[in-house]
């Protein structure tokens, strides 16, 4: 059976034409949570931008749900169910919480039923947002913004969820809450590609993981294997043997 999401030899670059990520091969299957780990500047966010069509592929192919989407525009990818929660949550700061959530369901705008139901589900998942529904999203705390970002993505009824550093700039308690939600989504069978700096948290919830360094995949395997390997620790804290 073909994979749900397949990247074959994908390279991508910004204006400078020097590839930031090179020859990325990656698959994601139904019901699976794959974590992409790596330090800063390893190319994690570039990978996600390429996946969501904000950055063109220099080479390689991206296939999603049996279709080649290498050249699709961002909104077409969203319509096909590939939903990204961007790094830093990217609130539409001047719009209310409810409007942010509604816009999450933009691709289903012709089905009012579905939107209403989705909204109810999100409010059930995050009761806090119901209290703040008419408040401007930019005035929320970091944790509440994270809820809006996740809720907004769920409104789109994703077939695959792409999470870009959900722990970005959040207090530990909020990070723990966020990962609890991620775990719950995984248990419901939502396929997730999780880009994360917080390796231990990510490996806790992931089935498989990849380690990205300098734009290339340097290690991959099951979450259990990787949490034992030195590769991960090195990518973050440097070689333990380095002279001081």
């Amino acid at each position: 059976m073909p994979h749900l999401l397949t990247l074959t030899n994908v390279s991508a670059a910004y204006a400078s034409a020097v590839p930031v990520i090179r020859d990325i091969n990656l698959t994601l299957d139904a019901g699976e949570l794959v974590a992409v780990l790596g330090g800063n500047g390893a190319g994690k966010s570039t990978l996600l931008r390429t996946l969501s069509g904000l950055l063109p592929c220099l080479t390689g192919r991206v296939e999603f749900a049996g279709a080649d989407i290498t050249r699709s525009a961002p909104h077409q990818r969203v319509e096909s169910g590939l939903i990204q929660v961007p790094e830093g949550r990217q609130m539409l700061a001047g719009l209310s919480v409810e409007e942010n959530l509604l816009l999450g369901g933009y691709v289903h705008r012709r089905h009012a039923e579905q939107i209403a139901q989705g909204l109810a589900e999100v409010y059930e998942l995050f009761p806090r947002l119901l209290e703040r529904r008419s408040q401007a999203a930019g005035l929320l705390s970091g944790g509440e913004q994270q809820m809006v970002a996740l809720g907004r993505a769920l409104m789109a009824k994703p077939k695959v969820l792409l999470l870009d550093e959900p722990s970005f700039g959040l207090a530990p308690l909020v990070v723990a809450d966020t990962f609890a939600v991620i775990r719950r989504l995984r248990e419901q069978g939502m396929p997730i590609l999780l880009i994360e700096q917080n390796a231990r948290k990510a490996l806790d919830v992931a089935d498989r993981a990849l380690v990205l360094r300098a734009g290339q995949i340097v290690a991959s395997g099951s979450a259990a294997e990787l949490s034992r390997s030195d590769e991960v620790k090195q990518s973050y804290l440097g070689q333990a043997t380095s002279p001081i």
């Binding site: 330090g39 207090a171 804290l237």
Partner: peptide, 20 residues
């Protein structure tokens, strides 16, 4: 800096901050 080899090698002192 995020490159810890570099940081550990060059720094006299380090301040670590998280969530501000």
């Amino acid at each position: 800096e995020h490159d810890m080899d570099f940081v550990m090698d060059i720094s006299d002192e380090i301040v670590v901050i998280n969530f501000g």
